[in-house]
Nucleic acid binder design. Structure first.
Lengths: 212, 212
DNA sequence: GAGGAATGTGAGGATTCCCTCGTGTATCAT
DNA sequence: ATGATACACGAGGGAATCCTCACATTCCTC
């Protein structure tokens, strides 16, 4: 495949309401097309057609395939982050076990409501969201842990957050490729992993969190 | 990209010594090319050229790009499995903590000695090793756990093995994308994850394994 | 309502890549 | 040696994609 030489071209940002509509239409089209036939097989013209737009209109806003995929990933990441932002609010009132449980359950729900996720996880690195976005996510998780266990250091929280994020990513990967009847068990398994990891790593018991 | 309609064509197996040499040359070439420029950018002609072979010779043995990548993955998987086969022998003599430590250390060494691994992990699903190979790996890990803790049930060992395998895969992904100075810490972190997971999941303490 | 900017359009150029195929050479069995 | 089979070669067909570009249309501003 011809790989564009520029690493990551910026999408042109729309200036009119009409343009914004187009962009969301195009992103939705990209989502369904990619979800349906995968990243590799998804072509720019298929995306344009699905959006009811001309190929030229697509290129107006997204100079290449990696770019629109990246935009879609960014959108997903933002929604992911937003979801956990809500959880952060209640983090300090939660039992550690409940926190872990909520964390995992939210993830699973996210997978279930974002049809293109499997295909996006399968897409090449060149389509990943920009570093800034990923940093936001890491910090969200860091903040979440700090809210729940205020006594750990910032750097430790960062490390825990990074690892937690990747564990959740792993769960996603596993979850989407598993037959439905095995999913429940894996979810349980990951709750156990996270919980025992936290218990081992945040020694003095749930310093935050309400005992019942 | 044009995606071949056939799901997964078989490579033609060489019949002469000359052919076997060619195949290993081609696989080595594929390894270095893919490691160097990534799966997407790697073209069949680049691989052939690197191997000092004509494009026709390449297609003699590997009918398409997914196929040769799959073959490379299969080779990697076999080496991976072989590595853990050795560990299985000493598994019952090892402390649980030592077992986990060896498990992780081996993984890291594997990453360091297999340059194409990052690119392969980034390659699309269509290039994954056949199910049979993956099954072998799962069973290797299952056997490993059973050797170490004979008292757990087969099905439980299977679940633990599957999860362990995926945790190790996660470590790989994280490891390759991290700057070297952060790698040590992540390695430590994953040892802790695995160990605390085992301790939580295999309750009665190290049933196998020698106490010191 | 005039002018400029943003957006829409789609045929087609330019590339690139995958893969075939006809032909030539090595290898091996008998 | 001789036939048969495996392997080597590489120019080029075929196919598909990416992306441009010149021109239409809509929108907004003053």
């Amino acid at each position: 495949m011809r790989v564009p030489s520029y690493t990551s071209a910026q999408p042109k940002v729309p200036q009119q309401k009409r343009g914004e509509r187009r962009v969301t239409e195009l992103l939705e089209a990209a989502e369904t097309v990619i979800a349906h036939i995968g990243y590799e097989a998804a072509t720019m013209s298929a995306i344009a057609e699905r959006a009811g737009a001309a190929i030229g209109s697509l290129y107006q806003f997204f100079p290449n395939k990696a770019c629109i995929t990246q935009a879609l990933r960014t959108e997903y990441a933002k929604q992911f982050d937003h979801m956990y932002a809500k959880l952060a609010e209640e983090a300090r009132t939660l039992d550690r076990e409940a926190l872990v449980s909520r964390l995992i359950d939210l993830t699973v729900r996210f997978v279930d409501t974002h049809p293109a996720l499997p295909a996006l996880l399968d897409a090449p690195q060149s389509t990943r969201a920009p570093i800034a976005i990923r940093k936001v996510l890491r910090e969200r998780f860091t903040a979440l842990l700090l809210a729940h266990s205020p006594r750990i250091s910032k750097s430790k929280a960062l490390r825990l957050g990074t690892v937690t994020l990747h564990l959740i990513k792993t769960l996603n990967q596993l979850y989407v490729e598993l037959p439905p009847q095995e999913r429940r068990k894996i979810v349980q398994e990951f709750k156990m992993i996270l919980l025992s990891y936290f218990n081992a790593r945040i020694k003095p018991g749930p310093s935050g969190g309400v005992r019942k």
